[in-house]
Design a protein around this nucleic acid. Structure first.
Lengths: 121, 121
DNA sequence: CAGCATCCAAGATGATACTG
DNA sequence: CAGTATCATCTTGGATGCTG
């Protein structure tokens, strides 16, 4: 198996990693891990995201083959975003990452408080 | 166990997740998973990072309790960054994420190419 | 409903020069 | 060597109006 140097910018692995290291991609992918979700529902649920960034991030994820966009000919039109098999494999990893944050959030916040305290004194 | 809504911006888990969802944090953490590394070595190895962002990201990771900074009174001064036990638990998850990118990079690039092809035609 | 286009503001990131 | 300071730029976001 071919091994890459992930710290080199030309490395394909690094390219993918960079693509996903933005503010919204992994969070949205995680939200889509279950049932399909509609655009405006995502907009309501993902706190703090703008319509523009949601639209842009969904398009990128679709381009990466991680999610699928399906439009239904209702009036007005209905659009559902769902996860692909490829995306599914990634979202389970993201789930582990979020679980980590869930489990260790307190420790991180405590470390931050202690760090800030040391600076102030 | 308390459960949070990770999609709400006030959620502690979401706050931690947001903190780590920047361009460099996870990559640097991953690089530090083994032996301690010095500042300029990181600067050389992490392709594309600027001195400013390296400095800033290291400071944030230290504040989060994920890495440790140690200065040695040599001339000129030597500084080593190493991972903490808390950081270790996160870096193994990041390793899984990078492994995913390693294994599925080709599939993503293929999806991107196909997507672009569909648009061009 | 599910977007796109535009303009402007704010924040994140980068390049360069300088220092103990 | 390991940074900081300053200025420039690129990315991201908010607001608004418009469309099928």
């Amino acid at each position: 198996m071919m091994e890459y140097n992930v710290y080199a910018s030309a490395c394909p692995t690094r390219m993918i990693f960079d693509r996903l290291s933005d503010k919204w991609s992994l969070l949205i992918l995680h939200r889509l891990r279950g049932q399909p979700v509609r655009f405006n529902q995502l907009l309501r649920e993902i706190d703090g995201i703008s319509q523009k960034m949601l639209s842009q991030t969904l398009k990128n994820l679709e381009r990466d083959g991680l999610i699928k966009r399906e439009a239904f000919p209702t009036v007005p039109v209905t659009v559902e975003y769902s996860i692909t098999p490829l995306g599914k494999t990634l979202s389970s990893t993201v789930g582990i990452l979020i679980r980590w944050a869930q489990d260790n959030g307190d420790a991180v916040l405590a470390a931050q408080a202690e760090y800030d305290e040391r600076l102030a004194s």
